[in-house]
Measured scan of single mutants.
Amino acid sequence: RSVMTEEYKVPDGMVGFIIGRGGEQISRIQQESGCKIQIAPDSGGLPERSCMLTGTPESVQSAKRLLDQIVE
């Protein structure tokens, strides 16, 4: 099973929602998708923050879907 890492951008203002209280939302996304998510510590003043998604292609797709649901 191939593991890939893909960069994915999320709106900087939504990072708090994505991480959730005490990190529980991001933990849930990682468990549900099976994908490891690393969010950049800051956006460098840009409107979007970079996330690194690491996992199988299916888990990366799944994580993107879950992130999109939060961001919308």
Rank of each mutant, 00 (worst) to 15 (best):
V10A: 04
D68C: 08
Q25V: 07
E48F: 12
G22H: 12
V10M: 14
R49A: 06
M14G: 06
G55R: 00
K64G: 03
I29A: 02
G34W: 02
D68K: 14
V15D: 03
R1Q: 01
L46S: 13
G20C: 03
C51L: 12
S50H: 05
Q25A: 06
G34F: 02
Q69M: 09
G45P: 07
Q61T: 14
R21Q: 15
A40N: 05
T54F: 05
T56L: 08
E48P: 06
V71I: 07
K64M: 08
V15P: 04
S33D: 00
P41S: 12
I18E: 04
Q38K: 10
P41T: 12
E58P: 08
R21P: 11
E32I: 06
E6Y: 09
A40F: 05
S43G: 08
S33F: 02
C35M: 00
Q25W: 04
A40S: 11
G55S: 01
V15G: 04
T5H: 09
I26Y: 03
G34C: 06
S33A: 08
P11V: 03
Q61K: 09
G13C: 10
F17A: 15
V71N: 06
G34P: 00
L53V: 04
M4T: 08
K36I: 07
Q69C: 07
S27V: 12
T5V: 09
S59Q: 12
D68M: 13
R21C: 04
E58H: 09
R1K: 07
V15R: 03
V10H: 01
G23C: 05
G45E: 12
S33Q: 01
R28K: 11
S27F: 04
I37P: 01
G22T: 05
G22S: 05
S43M: 06
C51N: 00
V71D: 05
E6W: 09
L46H: 13
S27N: 10
A40Y: 06
M4P: 02
K36H: 10
G55I: 00
G34R: 07
R28S: 10
V10Y: 03
K36C: 11
G45C: 11
L53W: 00
V60W: 00
K9N: 03
R28Q: 11
S59D: 09
E58Q: 14
M14D: 07
G16C: 07
C35G: 01
L67D: 01
R49D: 03
F17C: 13
E7M: 02
M52A: 09
G44R: 12
L66E: 12
T54D: 03
S43D: 10
S62N: 13
D68A: 14
E7A: 07
Q69I: 09
L53K: 00
V3N: 14
S33C: 03
C51A: 08
T5I: 10
M52T: 11
R49M: 05
C35Q: 00
C35R: 00
E58V: 07
S50M: 12
S2C: 06
G16Q: 11
V15T: 04
P11I: 03
R49E: 03
F17G: 15
S33T: 11
G20T: 03
Q69V: 13
Q31L: 10
G55V: 00
I19R: 10
T5A: 14
A63Q: 01
I70Y: 14
Y8T: 04
Q69P: 06
S62C: 15
Q31T: 12
T54P: 00
I37D: 00
L53H: 00
P41F: 03
T54E: 11
G34Q: 06
P57S: 11
T56H: 08
L66S: 11
D12T: 15
A40Q: 10
A63Y: 00
K9I: 07
E58N: 05
Q69S: 12
S59E: 14
S2N: 04
I19S: 09
F17T: 14
G22V: 04
S2V: 10
